[in-house]
Write a protein that binds this DNA or RNA. Structure first.
Lengths: 186, 186
DNA sequence: AAAGTCTTTTGCCATTTGGCAAAAAAAGAT
DNA sequence: ATCTTTTTTTGCCAAATGGCAAAAGACTTT
């Protein structure tokens, strides 16, 4: 829990009571590798913070191929920005994970009680989104080997722990190509 | 100006006085094609709304190539999310543009006077960022022709009005490739 | 240990894209 | 109108990536 608080405090100040309130309203959970945290078509209105492990967001394109849109590593929030709309993606544990989960009522209690809450959360989410955007953006203009090298750098813990297909679809190449690239690098 | 108000009202309510205050604090400006609205290394602390035309955000990669990160079309805001850090990108008019500009003092006046302002603006920015992210994301997993077709669909007004190089670097391919793709499509 | 399943690697070849330079076309300047 | 400059197209060939299927390897289950 300290990890979460520490993380939040980077973006705004909280007093002891507020920190306690956050702790009270949070639930720690575990996810096993491959388990889904959210599924397309179902409602998804929880907010979670990744304490350990990596999640991945994925969807199916019009050819039925599974595309990994991005990975969410430790010390990041996951939430559905469009809570009123049906969720169209999958959130899956790429490795075993420890999460801190906030359920809707608890989350709105925080929002209603802590004056600064919405501002802080907005900052956090915005910041994270910018990072994702930049990372994703830089993939477009590079060749596959460079993309993979950057991936290894950014997610060393995933490189040999998730199926090749996850990484390949994230990088926008086929499994076989990634396999060949991998071979050439070593 | 009505366009801006109408746009904002999609994300929250404003009364007459508030709308008037926004109008009072806004400045209409024009940009000629190719003109820079912001440059890397300089401060950029204005907030602008695109009334007409298209802007593009670009930067130089480590090979000195100019990369178009994304295009900003009508009815969108442009702002620097990290006002305290040096701006590292360029914002350039891809076509002649009409903008509504808010200067720092005016912007903070809105923020200080209109209770809901920050919330509304956050919603707007977040929403726009998600859209950019999704659009950019989908580029990664498609071949160049598909990317170009999607580009045409999304930015029909740009297709024959900006240099090929802007589009090519946005799509992550070379100019010659784009030229060949274009030829095959027609 | 053996059989079955799933993942990764490999071979073969087609297709796509890149790199470079020259030609052609378009836009701008005098 | 002519000359200049910039942008786009094209040709040629190399390199990268994809598609498909078989082989090899890893992991499970019995």
């Amino acid at each position: 829990m300290e990890k979460l608080i520490e993380y939040i405090l980077q973006f705004g100040n909280l007093n002891k009571q507020q920190i306690e309130l956050i702790s009270k309203n949070a639930t720690e959970t575990q996810l096993h590798k491959d388990e889904y945290f959210a599924e397309a078509g179902k409602t998804f209105n929880r907010v979670a913070f990744v304490l350990e492990g990596v999640l991945r967001i994925c969807y199916y394109n019009n050819k039925g191929e599974e595309i990994t849109k991005y990975f969410i590593e430790e010390n990041n929030f996951v939430a559905n920005p469009y809570q009123n709309e049906t969720f169209t993606e999958y959130i899956q544990a790429a490795t075993d994970c420890k999460l801190i989960v906030f359920y809707p009522q608890q989350w709105s209690q925080l929002s209603n009680t802590i004056l600064e809450w919405d501002t802080i959360i907005n900052k956090i989410f915005h910041h994270a989104l910018m990072k994702k955007m930049d990372r994703r953006s830089s993939l477009v203009s590079e060749d596959a080997t460079t993309r993979y090298l950057k991936f290894i750098e950014k997610f060393p813990s995933l490189t040999n722990r998730v199926p090749l297909s996850y990484i390949a679809s994230y990088l926008g190449i086929t499994q076989s190509s990634l396999s060949r690239i991998r071979k050439n690098i070593v």
